[in-house]
């Protein structure tokens, strides 16, 4: 079944965008356009005239969309979904999933709701992916920092790796800090002394 709502997804990450588009397509929404950059966004949206704009709640580009929300004619004006407080439950689910949506003009609420349900489900999955990706990135960069700090101590004080880690941990405990913070401070200090 082909449905006829014109939908724009604002998402810089290609994989995430593709996953959202796929989910919408599989439910029969085919007029989906992805915009990946805040540059020229308002103009592009003006050109595409979507009924619905979907964007991650954490995306700073959201403020750009505020501009289309004050367009002069009511047919072109986008309103953030939260304006429709009649459906508070859906608003809250959307928010928890990290989705914000702008509805342009006055399409039938039933159709909007149906798109949103699909989008919310997808955003729940992608925001989970995003969180995991970020944690993984953080863990990797923390480990690199820790390894460099250990290496520094091993070289400077002739310690074994285990002893170097022990020293970092002891310092952290005595200063009531995290090991990673002590490691970072050590690297900053040694960079300055170079």
């Amino acid at each position: 079944m082909i449905r006829d709502l014109n939908i724009v997804v604002v998402e810089p990450d290609t994989d995430l965008a593709a996953s959202i588009v796929d989910a919408l397509r599989s439910e029969g929404w085919h007029q989906v356009t992805v915009l990946d950059s805040p540059m020229g966004l308002a103009g592009q949206i003006e050109k595409l005239q979507p009924h619905l704009v979907l964007i991650d709640l954490e995306n700073p580009t959201r403020d750009v969309l505020e501009e289309i929300s004050i367009a002069s004619s009511p047919e072109r004006r986008a309103v953030a979904m939260f304006v429709d407080q009649s459906n508070e439950e859906m608003t809250l689910t959307a928010m928890n999933a990290g989705l914000s949506a702008y509805v342009v003009g006055q399409p039938e609420p039933e159709r909007i709701r149906s798109v949103l349900k699909t989008a919310i489900a997808r955003f729940q999955v992608t925001s989970q992916m995003r969180r995991e990706l970020e944690l993984a990135k953080q863990a990797l960069s923390d480990r690199k920092t820790l390894d460099r700090a250990k290496g520094l101590l091993m070289q400077a004080k002739g310690l074994s790796e285990e002893e170097a880690y022990g020293l970092l941990r002891k310092t952290a405990m005595s200063q009531n800090q995290k090991v990673i913070d002590v490691a970072r401070a050590l690297l900053t200090a040694s960079d300055m002394l170079k």
Binding site: E58, N59, R62, A80, S100
Partner: peptide, 11 residues
């Protein structure tokens, strides 16, 4: 992340 997000959370 944005003024719009701040505004909506307050609303």
């Amino acid at each position: 992340p944005s003024w719009a997000a701040l505004r909506d959370l307050m609303a």
